[in-house]
């Protein structure tokens, strides 16, 4: 980890204890130890993504705020004595805009983002199988889509062998069938 920079908040460090908490003399030392452990655990994660990702995140949040302001102002703000339906969302959206603008300017040095890596492709593949299940489920029942999803996740996302992928996915879907359909009698769409 880089040496702590006093001008910006350290992202890995929880914010200071809330008011009312007893003062902790050793808390700083302890926190440093906990941080070291945390950093060690985070070795399993991809590296941080740098200033452009931070800026991008802030801009997306800003856009959400602007969108909120635009839509809620068309709803009608009303007055404080007679608040319209748009007043509350409008107020929140303004806060979002202010905070994300602040984030865009101050947050560029933060290190709490993660780079997308080759393994992010796994997430994309996983996502495709989820959408596949959602679209096939009402059409052909839950058995075949579940089986396919299990198999893809085991064989390609989990790098299990062909054999154990087949055995586990068949076993799991059979267990689901027994549990959900036969025992709990949950009305899932079925093949037959």
């Amino acid at each position: 980890m880089s040496p702590p920079d006093p001008t910006r908040p350290d992202p890995t460090r929880p914010e200071p204890d809330p008011p009312g908490a007893p003062p902790l003399d050793d808390a700083d030392v302890l926190q440093a130890e906990a941080d070291r452990l945390q950093a060690e655990l985070e070795e399993a994660r991809p590296p941080h993504a740098g200033p452009y990702a931070q800026l991008g995140a802030a801009v997306v949040a800003l856009a959400a705020g602007v969108f909120g302001v635009v839509v809620s102002s068309t709803l009608g703000l009303g007055r404080l004595t007679q608040p319209g339906p748009g007043l509350w969302p409008f107020a929140i959206s303004v806060i979002i805009i202010v905070l994300s603008a602040t984030l865009a300017f101050t947050g560029r040095g933060l290190q709490d983002t993660e780079r997308f890596s080759r393994s992010s492709l796994l997430t994309v593949v996983g996502l495709v199988t989820l959408v596949g299940l959602a679209s096939l489920l009402p059409v052909i029942g839950f058995e075949i889509p579940s089986l396919l999803l299990m198999f893809v996740w085991l064989r390609w996302l989990g790098r299990e062998s062909w054999r154990s992928s087949i055995v586990i996915s068949v076993g799991a879907v059979a267990a689901f069938y027994v549990l959900f359909v036969l025992l709990l009698q949950i009305p899932l769409p079925r093949l037959i």
Partner: peptide
Amino acid sequence: VGNGNRLK
């Protein structure tokens, strides 16, 4: 109080 950046 949670982990991570407060502004976010």
